[in-house]
Amino acid sequence: MNTLSSHVLDTANGKPVANLALELMLPDGQTVVSSTDNDGRCKDWQNCDLSAGQYRLRFQVKPYLIQTHGESFYPHVDVHFELQATNDHYHVPLLISPFGFSSYRGS
């Protein structure tokens, strides 16, 4: 079975982002809601089956960015990716600032 994790870091202040809401949309359209822990990490997807298919991970960044930096150009950040049927671990980090973001496949 595939596993999925994420890590959200604020590049403007060099710190992890705690309590950020995330939504994982599964290939069948169902959505699983989770949030980052105190270290900005998330791996709790309510034991859903992470089978092969296309997924969308939505990071609700606006509340955090407004609270921390006073403004946010992005209401949310969507990262679309595809899992293979490989029993692999997938890691999708997000680096954010009020006016930019970056993501990649991590390890």
Rank of each mutant, 00 (worst) to 15 (best):
R58K: 13
V79G: 01
T68W: 00
P93E: 10
M25R: 13
P98W: 06
M1D: 13
H80Y: 14
L94H: 03
S5H: 07
S34I: 07
M25E: 15
S6L: 03
L65C: 01
L95A: 14
T68K: 08
V92S: 00
G40D: 07
S103T: 15
G40L: 08
D88L: 06
H80E: 15
D28E: 06
Q54C: 09
Q84N: 13
Y64V: 00
V77S: 02
F99W: 08
V8C: 01
P93S: 11
D39H: 12
G53P: 05
L83W: 03
Y64G: 00
V8N: 00
S35I: 03
L26C: 03
Y64M: 01
K43I: 02
C48P: 00
R105V: 08
P98R: 11
T86D: 15
K62N: 10
I96A: 02
V17Q: 11
F99N: 11
L65E: 00
L26K: 11
S102I: 06
L24M: 12
V33S: 13
G14E: 08
N2T: 12
Y104A: 12
V61G: 02
P27C: 04
A12P: 00
R41A: 11
Y104C: 15
G14C: 10
Y55G: 08
D28F: 05
T31A: 14
W45R: 01
R41T: 09
V61L: 01
A52K: 13
V79H: 07
P93D: 01
K62I: 04
P75A: 12
N2H: 08
L57W: 00
L4I: 11
E23D: 14
T11K: 11
R105S: 09
H80V: 12
S103N: 13
T11M: 13
F99Y: 06
L57K: 00
N87M: 09
G53V: 05
N2W: 06
P16V: 13
S97C: 10
R41S: 14
S6H: 02
N47F: 07
Y90N: 12
Q60R: 04
S35H: 06
H69M: 11
P98G: 08
T68C: 14
G40S: 07
G29W: 03
A21W: 10
D78P: 07
G106M: 07
N87W: 09
P93R: 01
S107A: 13
R41V: 10
A52S: 14
L65R: 00
T86P: 01
Y64C: 04
K15V: 07
P93C: 06
N38G: 11
K43Q: 13
Q54H: 09
L83T: 05
S34L: 03
N38I: 10
G100M: 05
Y104Q: 14
G53K: 07
G40W: 04
T86S: 12
T11Y: 10
L22N: 03
Y74L: 09
F73A: 14
K15E: 12
L20G: 04
F101T: 03
Q84C: 04
A52M: 04
F81Q: 11
Q46M: 06
F73E: 15
L65Y: 00
E82G: 06
R56Y: 05
L20M: 15
I66C: 04
N38E: 15
T3S: 15
L22G: 08
D39Q: 15
E23A: 15
N2C: 10
K15P: 02
L22S: 03
